[in-house]
Design a protein around this nucleic acid. Structure first.
Lengths: 377, 377
DNA sequence: TTGTAAGCGTTATCAC
DNA sequence: GTGATAACGCTTACAA
């Protein structure tokens, strides 16, 4: 790993000027084949790799897209990597988990989006620079984001992963595409990529009414500050109104996108004998909590109560009955985000781009009952 | 998004020289508080963000670690992101899958390693530059890797994700840490981070013999070119030898880390009435295939035949009976890799670092039988 | 403590 | 078709 060779070394080796070396790399057709070969040989011999920093400086672009991932509570994962000294590996009985294991939903979600971004980045001939926001202090995050901003041509930002002020700052400097964030008043003409939460919930509830003649609902909502949550509730309302049901007659219970609260809400509903025909939950975690409460009380799903979720997290198919839910195209979200960002980078003055990706309602036993006999698609 | 301000703009605004601006950023303590504040104000007012490229050029380091992910067969994921025009979301009945769904194992594996790398990169104050190797041609991959090499201080390379020649080339230019690759003759003094495949398999097989008195085995192996596969088989042999069983008496069946082949091998074993007491598989996919074949034939697991896997992929706990397997600390693999790489970058001449992470044998019903009564840990 | 100026390794605009 | 040479934006001796 001697000192890395530069254009000058290559030029000398090939007996040409550095300009020619650069041309061979960028516009090979403008250089005579003979010289071109000479340069390429030199490059090979020296193992020359152009400096990205120098290229970036000269061209004013890096070919890199930044992506900032929110940090979870993973900071405590701080064990050491002590080489194993024992000659035996650890044995551990691993009995089946009781109750529903607490899922770690966001993580899978981001993994999918990330993967989609990687794929599209590849298509665009760009790299992805990723950072995870483990430092919980706002300064830390701002510093990190600012640092990234200096290294990339544009940035994909996941909904609510960075403070508003930081986001505003960022948007002054480089193109930014928001993912899964509903347009907000304070974000005029931002490029964004999202998913049709409203339509998904609406279609789901329409189905409950049309196919299952549900006439009484309860809605277990997510946190107030979640745009997703609002959009879903809008869809819920629309479906009800459309069928002449006054949405006001369907009670809302405020949750936190967590299964625990939904479990308690449901248990309370059971105790007070206020169970509706269908329990519509703003996301899967909560639906799982509800199912657990119903199962504990021996209430039949879907015969007594229908339960639905949103997101299609992994656990929805391991619970009994399997949960009817709405799947978001996470991978496409990532793909679309990077695609839009690339367009924006190439054409900074084009009008704002907003993409809405369609969702899919997955009908499963928690509303359909036994499906085993149906033909598999 | 006017032209991005530079040190010069900041200097002018704060009425100092560009050197002072730089100092405020890098060594604030060397500048008088008054001037420091002036500069910081200017930075704030202008929304100044240092150019990573310029910094990289000047300091000869980027603060970025590269990571190259292998590309699967995901290239065909090429639909468009057509905004949904329909007002209704798509409804789809989603009956339970028959048979064991085909898992996509590597992907989860890499996601874990990636996540670990992100976490450690954060600890090290570095960013991660990732690229996925979708272009199947060797030139494409080499070009991509070479491009990355120009942008990073070092690189984490997953086992067999890039061609040997490219790897050799890469190692001449920048520090490289190999992940999950057994040391090979052609890779002298490489830094590497791996997992004790051998010890894991050995402990597992020892357990089968000690606790379950297994005296006849068959081994369903992975591909010949996989170091993991070899290490696991070594562990298998060692355990047998240790107990005075001649490994030669346990037939080996060559698989491909795929469930399909293992299924057929097992079915064949059944037909020929050659089933051993225990079927030890080199990874989970194959074990799942074996279980499927046994279930189809109505053979009891573990009463008639014990089956074991390796990796602990998601599906191991949804199959019946749940699969006894060996879990690798994927997240720690990533963490360790970045940690080692950071050390290497800071001290290029230190002796090679090799870390072996311990694995955990997870005893589940496919060898233990009913565990429901046991106390949960 | 602060300023001046010389790189860092490219690209790109001119001449030739 | 090729070669000088001036940016590009920052860091860092070296001077002041």
């Amino acid at each position: 790993m001697a000192k890395r060779p530069t254009v000058y070394d290559v030029a000398k080796q090939a007996k040409v000027s550095i300009a020619t070396v650069s041309r061979v790399l960028r516009t090979p057709e403008t250089v005579r084949p003979a010289t071109r070969d000479a340069v390429q040989d030199a490059i090979r011999i020296l193992g020359y790799v152009p400096s990205g920093s120098a290229q970036g400086l000269a061209t004013q672009k890096t070919g890199v897209i930044g992506m900032f991932l929110p940090g979870f509570d993973a900071v405590e994962q701080l064990r050491d990597f002590t080489p194993s000294t024992k000659d035996e590996a650890l044995l551990r009985p691993d009995p089946p988990a009781e109750g529903s294991a607490l899922p770690q939903p966001d993580r899978l979600y981001f993994d999918e989006v990330l993967r989609g971004s990687e794929i599209e980045a590849w298509h665009q001939g760009r790299s992805l620079l990723i950072n995870i926001g483990l430092g919980h202090s706002e300064e830390d995050i701002t510093a990190l984001v600012s640092d990234m901003a200096g290294k990339v041509d544009g940035m994909v930002v996941l909904a609510r992963s960075i403070p508003d002020a930081t986001l505003a700052f960022l948007r002054r400097r480089i193109p930014v595409v928001m993912v899964a964030n509903a347009p907000q008043d304070d974000l005029p003409n931002a490029d964004l990529v999202r998913v049709s939460n409203r339509k998904g919930m609406k279609a789901l509830v329409n189905h409950l009414i049309d196919a299952h003649h549900v006439d009484s609902f309860a809605y277990i909502a997510g946190p107030d500050d979640s745009p997703d949550n609002h959009k879903r509730y809008e869809g819920f309302q629309e479906a009800l109104s459309f069928h002449g049901i006054n949405p006001a007659t369907a009670p809302i219970y405020r949750g936190q996108f967590r299964s625990h609260l939904a479990h308690d809400i449901t248990a309370d509903l059971i105790k007070r004998r206020r169970l509706p025909r269908a329990l519509v939950c703003a996301n899967d975690q909560m639906a799982l909590g509800a199912i657990q409460a119903l199962n504990e009380a021996g209430i039949a799903i879907p015969d007594d109560v229908i339960v639905t979720g949103f997101d299609d997290i992994k656990e929805t198919t391991s619970v009994v009955p399997r949960l009817t839910t709405v799947r978001q195209p996470m991978l496409d979200l990532g793909r679309a985000a990077v695609s839009v960002l690339a367009q924006r980078i190439e054409n900074p003055t084009a009008p704002p781009i907003a993409i809405e990706l369609p969702v899919t309602v997955l009908l499963r036993e928690s509303c359909e009952g036994d499906m085993a006999s149906e033909t598999r698609e």
